[in-house]
């Protein structure tokens, strides 16, 4: 679905932001791109919508070479949800705001209406279609932004720090919607520095540091490489750090969330039968 081949990028001022990056994200995967600010995350992201073109190497999205594809062509394949929804909202109603994307794709009349209704339903905004997006709270504005992207029908969804500046409940809501979209077959790319978020939702992770791809693989594998994460300036999720000494001793496997850890520890302390009784189904 998404393939980077020896992608490098140097800014006109000579700063090399990405160095020889190669990866492959398959259709339907939920991948996280993680790294600190300045690791090259943002630069890589700007390649996904063709805003930047590789200095060397290439990036293929659903068979399209991003350096040659037109903006609208790419927008049809990849939807972006950015950190601040206020950077894109400008129309008087939620419905018009959601219709903006499909309209740019050249769609008309009925088809637009259908897509607006569908996208609004996916993010739970149906009852707000006639409201002014300015009057909604930040969490709902973020959903308006997401719906306006979904209305273009992309297979791939890129979320750039979707929870920064949101409160915990709003963050959970956006991630629940994302998870549902993933289940329906969307390929999801989550760009973030929040490891707890990654632990809870992603399947695999790509670690960026100093413009290089330091590591990629399934979550438990990536998070067990303390050395590489330290190099990238990242801390593994709290649950993994908590169990580190016992993982090395082989007592507790590499679980990522408090619920899974509780399950494991119950089993260790009380044996499988007892654990099965006290654990929620």
């Amino acid at each position: 679905m998404i393939r980077a081949e020896n992608l490098s990028f140097t800014y006109p001022n000579g700063l090399q932001a990405l160095k020889d990056i190669s990866f492959h994200i398959k259709k339907g995967e939920f991948a996280a791109i993680i790294g600190r600010n300045g690791s090259g995350k943002t630069t890589l992201l700007k390649h996904f919508n063709g805003l930047l073109k590789p200095t060397s190497g290439r990036l293929l999205i659903a068979g399209l070479d991003t350096a040659r594809a037109r903006t609208a062509e790419l927008a049809r394949k990849v939807g972006f949800l950015f950190q601040n929804p206020d950077h894109q909202i400008f129309l008087p109603t939620v419905a018009q705001e959601i219709a903006f994307g499909p309209r740019n794709l050249g769609l008309k009349g009925r088809e637009i209406e259908r897509r607006v209704a569908e996208a609004a339903a996916q993010v739970g905004l149906t009852e707000y279609l006639d409201a002014s997006p300015w009057k909604l709270g930040k969490g709902l504005r973020q959903r308006v932004a997401l719906a306006s992207v979904l209305a273009m029908g992309p297979d791939i969804l890129v979320l750039d720090e979707p929870t920064t500046g949101q409160d915990y409940r709003q963050a959970r809501e956006i991630m629940a919607i994302t998870k549902a979209l993933h289940r329906k077959g969307h390929t999801i790319i989550l760009v973030t520095h929040d490891m707890e978020l990654v632990a809870r939702y992603a399947e695999k992770a790509l670690v960026l540091g100093g413009g290089r791809l330091l590591l990629q693989g399934p979550l438990t594998e990536v998070f067990s490489r303390d050395d590489v994460l330290a190099e990238a300036g990242l801390l593994p999720p709290a649950v993994l750090r908590l169990t580190a000494p016992y993982r090395k001793a082989g007592l507790i496997p590499g679980v990522l969330t408090p619920e899974d850890l509780f399950r494991e520890v119950c089993t260790i302390l009380r044996g499988e039968d007892h654990a099965a009784r006290i654990l929620p189904a």
Binding site: A75, R76, Q88, N104
Partner: peptide, 9 residues
Amino acid sequence: QAQRARGRD
């Protein structure tokens, strides 16, 4: 960047 992602060239 945000508007571009919505297909506005």
